[in-house]
Design a protein around this nucleic acid. Sequence first.
RNA 1: GCCUUGGUGGCGGAAUUGGUAGACGCGUUGGAUUCAAAAUCCAAUUCUUUCGGGAGUGUGGGUUCGAUUCCCACCCAAGGUACCA
Length: 937
Amino acid sequence: MGYNFLEIEKKWQSYWAKNQTFKANNKSTLPKYYVLDMFPYPSGAGLHVGHPLGYIASDIYARYKRHKGFNVLHPQGYDSFGLPAEQYAIQTGQHPNLTTETNISRYRKQLDKMGFSFDWSREVRTSQADFYKWTQWIFLLLFDSYYCKKTNSAQPIEKLVAHFETHGSVNLNAVCDKKTSSFSRDEWIGFSHLEKQEVLLMYRLAYLSESEVNWCPDLGTVLANDEIVSGVSERGGYLVTKKKMKQWSMRIGAYAERLLEGLNHLDWPESLKEMQRNWIGKSIGANVSFDIQDHEGKIEVFTTRPDTLFGVTFMTLAPEHPLADIIVSDEQKTEVAAYVEASAKRSERDRTADVKSISGVFTGSYAIHPLTKEPIPIWIGDYVLAGYGKGAVMAVPCGDQRDFDFAKHFNIQIRNIFEGADITNEAFVEKRKIKIKDSDFLNGLDYEEAMIKVIDRLEQEGSGEGTINYRLRDAVFSRQRYWGEPIPIYYKNGMPVALKPENLPLVLPEVEQYLPTPEGAPPLGNATSWAWDTVYEKVVHNSELNETSVFPLELNTMPGWAGSSWYFNRYMDADNQQVFVSKEAVDYWQNVDLYIGGNEHATGHLLYSRFWQKFLFDLNLLPVDEYAKKLINQGMILGSSAFIYRKKGTQEYVSKNLIKEFEVEPIRVDISMVNNSDELDLEALKKWHPQFSNTSFILENGVYFVGREVEKMSKSKYNVVNPDLICEQYGADTLRMYEMFLGPLEQAKPWNTAGISGVHSFLKKLWKLYHKSEEFHVSDGAASKESLKSLHQTIKKVTEDIENFSFNTCISFFMICVNELTTQKCNEREVLEPLAVLLSPFAAHLSEEFWQLLGHNTSISLASFPVYEPSYLVESSKNYPVSFNGKMKFTVELSLELNPKEIQEIVMNDERTQKQLQGKVPKKVIVVLGKIINIVS
RNA sequence: GCCUUGGUGGCGGAAUUGGUAGACGCGUUGGAUUCAAAAUCCAAUUCUUUCGGGAGUGUGGGUUCGAUUCCCACCCAAGGUACCA
């Protein structure tokens, strides 16, 4: 029988569940430790071997911390709102909630099989009303707040109203979405209620504004970028254009500086922090405004190089720029209109990524240089994005490569304002080490001096100002979807009004159809009873209004990132019905000590959640303004897809090594039909899909070999490996250890089941070491010196490596240790007891079984982690090879310390060294840490 | 395009952070055990060689007594690129 992992694992999983072994307590005298995983989206494909990688790592660390005497919070839940469930609903009519519930119960079964030490009593689901009630509540707080630049924090909107009532807009230092006209105290008081609301909306942290969306007229809906494949909709293949729509947005831009600065204090991967820094994209420069010849208004640009203002030879507006169709001359009208229309069909990424093809169109109008008063031609170019800076640039061809290319292409003047720079073939983009010429009062100055001087002049003349620009855009918060949190807003006279917190949750209504309404309203518009029930009952009967007209509710829902922006706080106090998290709980748990998840969330979830945390901190609802002290990105486990090759236009398939002889197209096949030598099971293929039942194959030596390609693991690529099968075949402990053994946690790596037997036989070996003819066999005698040395070496290395999250090398040390103990025929309790605890974060079930066999009647998770004893690890002298002239190598026996005399003796007494030296004394002997490294003659 | 990461045997990966490149595992080969197979155990395994050696960490340079490690340029792959999660 031997190591019966199925029985052992089942036994301990039910023991842990029954005894609630991993339930965390909100009151404890122990120090706290909060280990968090990014909660999964429960997809229909089930959990694949890639998902558990991070969960295993966090579980190892959570179990390790429990052994080290911490009160560990290690929760899990589901990010259960999302697009796939909705798309499935559109296709099948099945309610997304049903799909989601089914998927969740499947996920839970799979997770349970792997023996994770999650505290399931704190489970959260973002799609459940008792959770999204609080997501809506946070939305209301954002709606009722503005950002005060004086206190540098969010403040209640009443404070803003109070300011308007006493000072008007004078001396106001608040972030708003556009330039507001200034007004006095009396004017404010004179405003109608509607006018007041209109002003306030420009300051709220959750606000309504026009933003651009991917619009598909044929489907009558907004599409995610993911739903667009090469310019057309994935569903139906219809044309997609851009369209402006009134959308809810989050004023994350107000937090740009704090989000940037906060990174400096986080123990997150440098690369990820760098990504966030670049995403926020702080740049220092100036806003400059240009008058327009024969037109009202001004064109404002942001530039990081105001020092090159005298090098401006043209301006470029984004095609979406509001002035674009106003300033265009009559003769250019058709050309401009065609260009604007064409670029509306191009995606933003396409526009910026494509640097090779230069496109643009002249508007026929001229701006006036603010200092020289010269006319400057105004162009439109789609490399300028409406959403960045001011949506317009002043072009300085001599100092910017893209401006240079544009000018060359359209034959626009290039003016060199850099002393001694050669700009015949490319722009001079270097900022330093050059002086400016032909620039009036800036002549002879360098970059820094010119920056200060020109900004000074612009400010004096009122045509510009020094400013800081962030690339970070405010986050669009509306989705024209069904399966998301309803936004707790209704409209009165076209103005958004917040529901009262006591009326939350605003529950998702039932609908017949998950598609937009025929009138083009979002899917929630299909609800028949919702508006009546919710708004009439809650708003009218609570006498918010005493009229019985229709109150339209907001029909958009929240985006996927809403719930995930604060869920980690909810785990601290998941059952609380009164508050989103009690003060008591959050004061104890504070924040996440270790957060493990993929770096694909770097500029999405990980930025939005920091923003919400800072916001809630500003309102004194949370004690810290960063929620995750340490973050680790686990690398993605990639799948190894299998391909067969069809001869073009035929039903003949060619084995992999013969494809060069034919013109073929690759087709994915399910990897379950391919063995470890890449041989395809042809019978299985014929059964797999009817299209293969009547095909012929060109084989190599009677075998069809498939091609392989490493890519993201996904159901649609037929390359998913299911962890359940592995748990059945080898056990969860093997899977846990193998996933860790596969490679460094942070690195992406392809899944390969081939190596799993090595880890499995390690566990079998350990089992056998302490079993004699099926009976547990342990000696109470003293262990040998060698055994203790092996043990303590392993304790030392494994402890160090757990602390460094280098779990793959831990497994190697375990293997070496068990091999050594097997050779030493070690079976002493003295060794097994600490070894079982050492192993328990990894092979959680097996070590628990050993713990019981050793006579303990409590869970091994209560045992304390072993500490190594240095006296067992005394180093003996070692043979070190010494390289001579970098070529010849010989070996000398060295003790740990060397003095020059000893070195000389070693060198002189070695025959081969002497042969090489030919009697000469070496010039130099390099010794590092007591080792001779090199001898130079 | 831009931002970030990675590239070491047949494969996954080690390398005390500038000091014996290839730990550990898989695979392969040979052997032991067995009627046989599975399982298990032992040994070999970077390539090349005229058996002296030679080459070798994506490519090409550089710094250094010494480079997988540091610097410069390039090639390739993965993730993100603002409505997938």
